[in-house]
Structures are given as C-alpha cells and as structure tokens.
Amino acid sequence: MAAKDTSKLSEEEHPMKGGDGPNSYANNSAYQKEVAGAAKELVDKAILEKLDLKVLLSSSKTFLIADLGCSIGPNTFFAVKNILEAVKFKYHSHQLCSDQVLEFQVFFSDHTSNDFNMLFKSLPNNRQYYAAGVPGSFYGRLFPNASIHIFHASYAIHWLSRVPKEVVDRNSPAWNKGRIHYLNSTDEVKRAFEAQLAEDMECFLHARAQEIVCGGLMVLIIPGIPHGIPHSHALANMTYQLLESCLMDMVRKGIVSEEKLDSFNIPMYFMSPQELEGCVERNGCFSIEVMKILPHVLAHGTVYNALVSTSHLRAALEGMIEQQFGEEILDDLFDLFHKKFEEQPSTSEPGKAINFLVVLKRN
C-alpha cells in the first residue's frame, strides 16, 4: 500500500550547509555533539531498561535503526554508534540467540536536498552496520509499516515543516513585518507558530506510530525552553534579534530589500517538555518512558563565544538566507553578526534555554 500523501503540508527544505569546507555543518556542529554526549548515559539506560525483549527476539537477524534529520555527519555517526552498542549490550547480556550474530541496518534520513554525497563519503570505515539513505521529510511516511526498531532524532524536530502562512500574509493579523522569528513578536505570530507545531507534531507522531514496531523506541533530543518561560526570554531570542538587526542594517543601506526581509521567517519552534508531552498524549500511540532536561554543555570553551556561535548559526541558516537574499550578502552579513555578538554584554541566563531528552515507546 502506498504511503499516505502529506503534500498538503507544503513543506520547505532547509538543509544544513553541506560539504567539508570551513562553513560546513560537518565542521560547525560541535555543540550538538556535546549535547548528544550529555544524553548518552540516559539513552543507554533507556535501551537497557525500556526496549522490549520481544523486539530483540523478533529481530534475531537484523535490527533496524533510523536517524531522522541526519544531516551530513559526524554527529549522526556518533549517535548511531552509541545506540548500536547499547542494543548489542542488552542483546548479549540476556544471552539472546547466542549462536547467531545480530546484524544492524541503519537508515540515514533527511530532505532530498541534503548533501548525501558528503554523508556517504564520511561513513566510518569500521562501522558495524549496513548503511542506506532515505530522502524525504520526517513529517510524512518514510518506511514500511512496523519496520523500524529504534528511531533517533537530535536537534531536528524544532525545525517546522514550513513557515506558518499567516506570518507572511500582509492581510493577516499575524503578519510578522520586519521580524524574522516569533520569539519577540506579537501574540498572533506566536499563536501561528504554536499551531504549526501542533500540526507538524501530529503528522510526525502519526507517521512514526505506523513505521515503528510494537515495543520499539523513539529517542529525541530537543532544544527548547523551560515550561512557563515567555518565548521572548528564550536564549535563542538574542541570536535572532542580532541577525534581524544585521538584516535591517542592510535594508537601510540598500543592500537588502525591505520586501524580502518582511517575507523572511525562520521556521523553528522551541517547545517546552510539557508541550511535547501534550502532543504525545493527543496522539495516543506512545508512552513517555524518559523525559529529562540535559546538563548544560559548552563547546570550545563557551557556546556563547562569538566566533563559534557565528559559525554554528551560519552552518544552519546559510542555505535559507542565500535562497532569500542571495549569496553575495553572506560574508558581510555574518561578519556583521560576529561583530555585534562580540559587542553584546555577557548577560545570558542558561536557565532560559534547555536541551531535553525524550524516549517514547510504541504501545
């Protein structure tokens, strides 16, 4: 039977910067790897304690893992290796089919415009799994029914399927004129992004519920905000306000058109653990086995270092900025961002940004 059509979502594709150059995601994602490292012990424990033995027994030949929003490495390989080792440990500790070697198939999935060539070139030579790429959005179906044993997604599902259509509609009360995000915008804009999150998570959980085996696990690492904190107080707000001010400077200089700025919004939403919990409850197909806020981590001394922060932001947003404003502004834009970041007072409050781990189990 064909997968359910999800084209109604009008999905956008904004892959991370490909290749292995100085601005690539491969060379500018150390922070995300540190976050995954902070979650490793909890993920190991969840697999050991929560993965059903019948899932392992029924997959005595091949165990299937899928990483959603894999990008180009190296973080996806780090995450997959950790999951694989935890599954093997559980398998051997229970002496399951001791006369038979458990084999692993790993599916690396991302948008069709992801740099899969770079991903495959970077595959570890000593990997203990068979690798395959699966192009497509994780807001729709990607795999056959009841085929995947563990899903993983890290720093992925805060990307929405698209910018809410209301925020770029001049006739809508949610028109987000002059702003590039919802974090410090009007209530109408915030509600539009919240509604988009609800729609997207409904699609995400519905698709995964069909694709995962009964008793299988879904491991999610999500950047978000603590419950009850106003969106305007989110740590990411400072970053996007700085980027927004840089673009406004370029508008005033005639480098960027005001119309293009008014139609530019970053399709991200930083949810709280409680918001995700509500999405899972509405879906009804999964139980929440683990929900933990991860320890704060630092990359290259401090995540708020201007050079590191600029490089990480460029690796994530360069593609969509180039698509909207053209390649010629990129260097000047991020040079200006770097300068403004350095001039900011060091008043960041880590409590207003969190990373949290959620482990879901298919009922």
Rank of each mutant, 00 (worst) to 15 (best):
L205K: 00
T186C: 08
N237Y: 08
A236H: 12
R252T: 13
R179P: 09
S232T: 12
I288K: 11
Q210P: 02
H233S: 13
I229M: 08
Y240Q: 01
A192K: 00
K253S: 14
F193M: 00
L220Q: 02
A207W: 00
E289G: 01
H227D: 14
E275C: 02
E275M: 04
V290G: 04
A195S: 11
H181W: 11
K190E: 14
A234Q: 11
I222V: 15
G278E: 14
A207Y: 00
C285S: 15
C203S: 11
A195T: 15
E211C: 03
V219L: 10
V213C: 11
T186K: 02
V189S: 06
L220G: 03
M271W: 01
S245W: 10
L261R: 00
G224V: 14
R208H: 11
L183T: 12
T186Q: 02
S185I: 09
E211V: 12
M271R: 01
A192F: 08
L217Q: 02
H227L: 01
Q274R: 04
V189H: 11
L235T: 15
A209K: 01
A209N: 03
G215H: 04
E188H: 03
C285G: 06
I221N: 05
A195K: 06
F204S: 00
A236N: 08
L243P: 14
P223I: 04
C203N: 15
Y240G: 04
S263I: 01
L243E: 07
E259C: 03
S232H: 08
S257N: 07
D249Q: 09
V256C: 07
H233P: 00
E199H: 07
A236V: 12
Q241A: 06
C285N: 13
